[in-house]
Design a binder for these strands. Structure first.
Lengths: 187, 187
DNA sequence: TTAATATACGGAGGCAGCCTCCGATTGGCT
DNA sequence: AGCCAATCGGAGGCTGCCTCCGTATATTAA
């Protein structure tokens, strides 16, 4: 039972303004967006930003946790999908939509998955476990090569998400993911 | 005929020390390594660094051009290889070795290939053209799916190069590239 | 309503890195 | 030796990171 004392009214106001502006800034300038700028845009001192979010990761994590939780939930739903491989593929596309939200986020998440001390690590952990179930099911069904690991799959998704924006149009990530699933050899 | 006045002795000395230290710094800290630090380590003022290399890209380009030229040359050699697809694969692995030299380089190169104003763009151009020949040959031989473009292939290589270090061991890039060529579906 | 106090605010300040500009220095030539 | 173009070096202006602490204010109790 975590006792949560309600925030003071001004604190809550600032907290929310900061999140809004951070969302805008990250979307516009990528995960390296200036935090001073976020504070300015939110009409708040830089000290206030750092009190609410001690690190950039803390800010990002707050913005993303709901999405990651949603992805974990979605993985559980897809476990009942009749087509194991397609379910996995669909799930990865969903994750790609999230890691594609901010430029630089794919890198951050890929790093986080290897670093237990990262705040994002905790946030992604449940999600990754849920993904493993999807992977194992697809392998058990003989639809996914047995020698590939969840780690590798997630990394491939992150790579596609990283590379997607370098392709013209805005379906780059989907196209790359499709290529990865199909393989490059001529049929 | 570009008239090349020989550099003054001190200039040449500094130029070379800067390249040496830049190589070390980039290898150690990635492409975002501090240029002030490079100058310090080279025992040279920051102004001197910027005179010789007006931008970070100029410095990187000088360090990498020989490698890119070598890759172009290698592509031409591989055109006579009896196995078109394997030749292409081998060539991509070689490129991966180069883009894996410094952390962040894969991103830089992928960006450069879309930006004609980049110094690296010029430097990669010949290499990319040479790669296209390899691609077309593999497709003509029916060994590579016909709907994939050179751009997409290079991007997949860059993505693998970007992601490689996130896998344990130091064969991450190779492993990912192999997966991409084979495809993820169970055989 | 007012006073007391815990809570929260804000930005100055110290540090580092980017890049430019220009007075000081020096290599190379006569 | 002496000149001058080539080169050097780093101060200075800017931005961003993050911390610290004096000031302000929301809330609670009287």
């Amino acid at each position: 039972m975590t006792e949560v004392k309600p925030m003071r009214a001004d604190a809550r106001r600032n907290y929310e303004r900061l999140l809004e502006e951070a969302q805008r800034a990250f979307a516009e300038h990528g995960v390296e967006a200036s935090l001073e700028d976020v504070a300015r845009r939110a009409g708040v001192g830089i000290g206030t930003l750092y009190r609410h979010f001690p690190t950039r990761d803390a800010l990002l994590e707050t913005l993303l946790r709901a999405r990651f939780d949603g992805q974990a939930e979605r993985a559980r739903e897809l476990l009942t999908d009749p087509a194991p491989l397609e379910a996995l593929q669909a799930w990865l596309l969903g994750l790609g939509d999230t890691t594609g939200t901010f430029r630089g986020l794919a890198e951050l998440t890929a790093d986080a998955l290897n670093d237990e001390t990262s705040r994002l690590y905790a946030s992604c952990h449940a999600m990754r476990d849920a993904a493993s179930q999807l992977v194992e099911r697809a392998q058990a069904a003989g639809e996914l090569r047995a020698d590939v690991t969840t780690h590798e799959l997630l990394l491939l998704l992150h790579a596609a998400s990283w590379a997607g924006p370098h392709l013209p149009g805005d379906a780059g990530m989907q196209r790359l993911l499709a290529l990865v699933f199909e393989g490059l050899r001529a049929s």
